[in-house]
Amino acid sequence: MTSTQVAPARESHVVSSRHRFMTRHASWIPVFAAIAILVAMVIGAQIYFDGDFLSPPLISSILLDNSYLLILAVGMTFVILTGGIDLSVGAVMSFTGMFGASLLRDGLPSGVVAPVMLACGALIGLGIGVLVQYFDVQPFIASLAGMFLARGLGFVVSLNSIKVTDSSILWLQRTRWHFGDWYVTATGILALLVVAVGALLLAYTRFGRTIYAVGGNEQSARLMGLPVARTKLLAYVVSGTCAGLAGVVFTAYTGAAYPLNGIGTELDTIAAVVIGGTLLIGGSGFVVGSMIGVFVYGMIKTIINFLGVDQSWTRITIGGLLLLFVVVQRVIVARSARRR
């Protein structure tokens, strides 16, 4: 009865190189789209300002001004890749900044304070992860609790801004290494280092691959015998730790800690990650893409500064760009779903 073989069992090996690329690297396309947008923005601005826009110091300042966001975006990428979301990062950054600044004010050395700040971030991340993983709380809500907690704790430390005078923290920001007209600060290097470590973790470790597997299909990952619980937990810890580190960098950047810092930063971070091509449903995206997303964000801010118009346009533009990207992503996903 089943002896009638009707269709060839093997797939055709004759494939065009374009098809080959599509079947292998389709998930990189949104990243290329982000790069295209970035390039288009730069070229557009360059033309608009009669070639008076792009300069090495300007590009250097984009990294400098957004290094905290870059660090947050790396952590957020881990969480979003698992299919979750972390709304707490802005508040955690602010709280660890406050806490660190108060410890420094009390005379603790920065060599102790900085690790403590990272640990605080990690701890809040762990708490969120436990709620998500062990009590089936939606990531949205669990990280919301983390955000409220960190926001409130920031005010518990102090209602007012705390000035930071510690030389080694300030060194992170003040020292600029110049290469011709280009320059880079320790915070910038730190941010790029975080990007590199994040990218390597995701691409070349089992932990990283499990993150993708969990985001792709959590049930499958569990049935495959992968350590799903540990991985999801760790993703939130990574995000929390990044938020702690961002707290260090942001404190160095502003030279002070203020409990109202970083309001809405979680939204900027999510926007940057999504613009960088990471799908919010999880399982697809790259840290490098998030970096591009942060640069797009920084570029918009810079252009709006250059135009001299109201800064409220930044958020409007980011919102518009986010929309554009989401629509494009949506079209890509819909088309690949139809192909199947």
């Binding site: 691959r209 299909n217 495959m224 399982g283």
Partner: peptide, 26 residues
């Protein structure tokens, strides 16, 4: 029960990837 977002090879090897010097040898 596989992960459609990953490659065929990864799906076969997930959790058993071959490693060299601490990183996955793809």
């Amino acid at each position: 029960n596989l992960c459609a977002n990953l490659s065929v090879g990864e799906n076969v090897m997930l959790g058993h990837e071959l490693r060299r010097g601490g990183r996955i040898d793809w």
